[in-house]
């Protein structure tokens, strides 16, 4: 079973990221769940969302505390939230940042295999707003191949309808531009 933790800020769509991923996995015939870490949902406050994906039925309804993959939607969270917390041995962090993996590792102490993409820039250019949830999914899929890009794009179309195009472009660009470092 794969366990994922999404770090974002209220209003950035971290919950939607987790949901789209789970929906794509379920459409692929797998078992999956996605849920937010609920709180007073203040716009801008650090929030978490969780997802689990498995070949078998998932029987666990607790928060993800030992993720295989952590996804950081907002660069400003890196210095105020310990996104590496509980990351399993050999875990992956998919990070929205303008810095290199080396710098993130040395200066902030990020652990695990790092996948870095400047999602703010991509989202601003393709969607017109710095909402990075769909962009970050591109980097996540590139790094992990959890589900196929086609299945995920299918979910983007379903969720966003008329405004799906920008999100799909941002997703595809992040898939291309994300740098996977060991």
């Amino acid at each position: 079973m794969l366990e994922l933790r999404f770090h974002g800020r209220g209003g950035q769509g971290g919950v939607t990221s987790a949901e789209l991923l789970a929906l794509a996995a379920i459409a692929d015939g797998k078992f999956a769940q996605a849920f937010p870490s609920f709180g007073p949902e203040r716009r801008g406050a650090p929030v978490k969302a969780f997802a689990r994906i498995s070949e078998a039925q998932i029987r666990n309804r607790t928060a993800v505390t030992t993720p295989n993959i952590a996804i950081v939607l907002d660069p400003s969270l890196l210095t105020i939230v310990n996104t590496s917390e509980g990351l399993v041995e050999g875990g992956i962090q998919v990070v929205n940042s303008t810095h290199s993996a080396k710098a993130l590792r040395e200066e902030i102490g990020l652990k695990g295999k790092l996948v870095v993409v400047d999602a703010n820039k991509i989202a601003a250019e393709e969607i017109g707003r710095v909402i990075t949830n769909t962009t970050m999914l591109g980097a996540l899929i590139k790094a992990t191949g959890i589900v196929s890009t086609d299945l995920l794009i299918e979910q983007l179309k379903k969720r966003f309808g008329r405004i799906a195009e920008g999100n799909i472009k941002a997703f595809n660009r992040a898939y291309e531009e994300a740098v996977v470092a060991e």
């Binding site: 987790a18 379920i26 849920f35 998932i58 309804r61 607790t62």
Partner: peptide, 12 residues
């Protein structure tokens, strides 16, 4: 059913 941990979970 339990709030959030059932009500808000996307699942199959």
């Amino acid at each position: 059913f339990d709030g959030f941990i059932v009500s808000h979970v996307v699942e199959p």
